[in-house]
Amino acid sequence: MAELLANIHGLWEVVRFPLGAFMCLAGSLLCLVGTVGVLRFPDIYTRLHAASITDTSGAALVLIGMMLLSPGWLVISKLFAICVFLFLTSPTASHALANAAHTAGIQPVIGRVGSSDAEGEDA
């Protein structure tokens, strides 16, 4: 039993570095996708949706990847604190932004947006 646990632990120590690095890379690529969305979408409200990819899945994947790479519990607790902060504050900031834009009288684009309406800001 103890040997099995030791085997699992050894395997985990080998596996976690490539896995963590891969998750970091995947998360940062998702951040890039969110940025491309921020550049492409037509108005402020739709850009908020693209930015929330960065805030949720991108940040979560990068932070979990760094947790797998981390050398000790202290680093994991710090990463967990960052994760909790981001998950609590990012929707609040998004809502404040949307609410401020709405109060300022910026009208959202409603209805189907085809490719002909896309501006030439494509990255």
């Binding site: 693209a50 899945s57 959202p108 409603i110 947006v113 085809g114 490719s115």
Partner: peptide, 22 residues
């Protein structure tokens, strides 16, 4: 969140912009 992420990521990387905000 994961389910919704997939939808939005698809909307972001699709070659032609195909969204219908409401």
């Amino acid at each position: 969140i994961v389910k919704a992420n997939l939808t939005v990521i698809r909307a972001c990387v699709k070659a032609d912009l195909d969204i219908a905000p409401a």
